[in-house]
Design a binder for these strands. Sequence first.
DNA 1: TTTTTGTATTTTGTATACAAAATGTAATGT
DNA 2: ACATTACATTTTGTATACAAAATACAAAAA
Lengths: 207, 207
Amino acid sequence: MIEYKNLNEPIYLKLKEMILNGELKQGEKIIQEKIAETLGVSRTPLMKALLALENEYLVESIPRRGMYVRALGKKEIIDIYVCREALEGMAARLLALSKDTKVIEALKACFYPFSSHKKINIDAYSKADEKFHSLLIKLTGNEPLDKIYFFGNIHEKVIGHGLVRPPEETLEEHFKIINAIEEEDPDRAEQYAREHIKKSRALLLDQ
Amino acid sequence: MIEYKNLNEPIYLKLKEMILNGELKQGEKIIQEKIAETLGVSRTPLMKALLALENEYLVESIPRRGMYVRALGKKEIIDIYVCREALEGMAARLLALSKDTKVIEALKACFYPFSSHKKINIDAYSKADEKFHSLLIKLTGNEPLDKIYFFGNIHEKVIGHGLVRPPEETLEEHFKIINAIEEEDPDRAEQYAREHIKKSRALLLDQ
DNA sequence: TTTTTGTATTTTGTATACAAAATGTAATGT
DNA sequence: ACATTACATTTTGTATACAAAATACAAAAA
């Protein structure tokens, strides 16, 4: 079977990168013609990418006024963490019920490099963390769930490239979630996944 | 402050209606030029509406092949109910913590016409049911949550215009949720909201 | 100075044109 | 008959053109 690739994905990816690394600032207006020119495309495929990003909560459209890089206030960030708590909690539950050994392997693999109790590279751990949370959703095989879970992007944007809490604290929590899944205990898997997000949320709320 | 209205919303709404009432059939290819002509617009604003519908899980895009009305199989429907369980459960929890009397009023108002224990009009109850579940989300004031909860549409599509379970069964469950919210008991509110969806899901799974 | 009004410029929204790919069909060969 | 190829048609993807609205700016009035 032939694989048809999305032709305007490169535009979408480039724009997303520009938003996440701050090349396009929060609240900044996206002047279509200007961006289209810098990307070397016309407004038509650019608009498709912008609409996709609007649905990922990265861009906000005001009719007849234009598209703006979404500015995330404290409330929005907290609200997103509430959504994550619900979705990742459910994902952990589903995985605990799945009885799939490959799931456990994949999740554990994220943190193999950090299990030796040596000094932890923050940047590498940050990537592993993002991978873990994304995998938690993807491994469920629930496509609608994956579709509504687009908050991974936000993560970087909120904290820069860092983490909400130090690895020493979260590594253990990650393994608690994985172990509950391995022991096929859906209630504990969900509970731990939710507590994990909730703790980060509480910290963000204080700042 | 001036309110700017989305100019291509009429196209979006008309298309959505055509999909939900079966005028455009499941799995049917959407030939852009043809639909554009029947709607009396060009392909450009039509594409915007189609991309919005793609993000609502009503339309599926295959690059270079075209846009298709999404065909929902049993798995997708079950998966959507799993998402609803997570999201509505969390919403009920948030409302229980909100201590807002207007919330209770609004939720109760959905079912006032059916509290007299007379014969229940299925069509009216079906609308009330949809309203209730939509309100549960909206009243939280969590915008990202509202954005990812686009499954209300699906409901009609799955069951025609009917209900998964009879009103006699679900009316009581609705009030159990409302009461738990009123008593500011987040755990029970979430539990009841989840059980409510779960029961419907179990029934769909059997069919 | 500050506000208002009129005008020029910019920018969005939509229609249209055209190239490239996909699809359909008929002719050819096995 | 069936498969394969060549060609015509359809359809998507992108660029461009143009109208309508929003914005910026300068001149006039309070």
